[in-house]
Computed example of a mutant assay.
Amino acid sequence: MSLHAYWDGERIDRAQISRHNVDQVRSKAEESRTLVHPFCEHRVFIRSKSVGGRLRYHFAHFAKEKATCRWAGESESHLALKDTLVFESRRLGWDAEAEAGKSGKDRPDHIPDVLAVHPNTGQRVVFEVQVSSQGAEEYRRRQDLRTVVPNTRSLWLTRNADVALEAGYVPIYHLERGDEKVATDLIATRYVLMADWVDAALRNRLDRPRTKHAWELWIAEEEARAAAEAAQQEALMAKLDAAEAARKTKKEADAEARRQRIAARNSASAADPARWGWGQLPPLAVAHNFRTYLDASYSQATRARAVAEDLGYGDGEVAQHGGHGGAAAHELREAPTDLGADT
């Protein structure tokens, strides 16, 4: 479907067709067979549809050509929105037409959905209706194509409320469900009827995003800030890695020094065993023969206690203390000979 076509090389808009002349136009178009689609150049015919009790006309493909035309799938809601934009712009005294531009099989990206031109000042306002999903980068690319012409503003209508903040400098306004109202601000908090929105758009009274130059400066500042934070984080990580490496190196050096001291002690012990007494065994010797070290320590402690008891009590006091004598109690003694006369 399309809102305009070419008839014998001349553009004809659906606004030029009414119930008074539609039969005549259809007859002549069928006779000349030159009514064609503006982009694919396939033959089209005039079709009518009742909208709100009024007949609306548009140009439709014949079934045979519809399958091979990349523009044949344009939705009726898209066409209706473009038609409304044209109607409201003309009502406000602007010259407006849908899909203004040259025809051809390769439709240029810069052909606008609706172009409104002020009859006195020549100011141009482009309206784009983006019903399907489109990424922020594609919005910026297509926006640059439309604003390359001097004295031109380009505004977008979309059903995606979030893309406006992602697209940067592209002025995108949200269409409310039903396409009857449009947001006047980029964050979609204030809505007005389509007629009032077009009036505000042509008078340049809508909320606008920052300019492309200001947006590019902001992006550069954000990228520089992010790079500085990344460099700072990288420097901090390098510092932490260096500290950890130094700690590990010191730990390894301390362990090596300890191994060398133990090795030196063991070497001295092997060369001169007499220098080590009980209780003074070299650490490595204790570790390698711990059981012997414990036995020796126990025997030495036992003998020390026995000597202390002998010095304190003497051999004659052994019996008085329940046979718990000192060192003498542990010695073998001769059997007594004076056990009494009865023996």
Rank of each mutant, 00 (worst) to 15 (best):
R14I: 01
Q16M: 13
I17Y: 03
R19W: 01
V36Q: 08
H37M: 03
H58V: 02
L79W: 08
L79E: 06
K82A: 00
D83Y: 00
D83R: 10
W94E: 15
D95R: 15
E97Y: 09
A100R: 09
R107E: 10
H110G: 08
I111L: 11
V114M: 09
H118Y: 08
Q134Y: 01
A136R: 01
L145Q: 10
V149D: 14
R153K: 13
S154W: 02
R159L: 07
A161L: 04
G168C: 09
R177S: 13
D179Y: 08
D179I: 01
A183T: 11
D185T: 14
A188W: 00
R190C: 09
L202N: 05
N204F: 04
R205W: 09
R208K: 11
T211Y: 06
K212Y: 05
L217D: 14
L217A: 14
W218H: 07
A220F: 13
A220I: 13
A224V: 01
A227E: 09
A230F: 01
A235D: 09
L240D: 03
K251Q: 13
K251G: 04
E252S: 12
R258N: 11
W278N: 05
L284V: 01
F290L: 15
D295V: 01
Y298G: 00
S299K: 12
T302E: 05
A306R: 11
A308P: 07
D310Y: 01
H324Y: 15
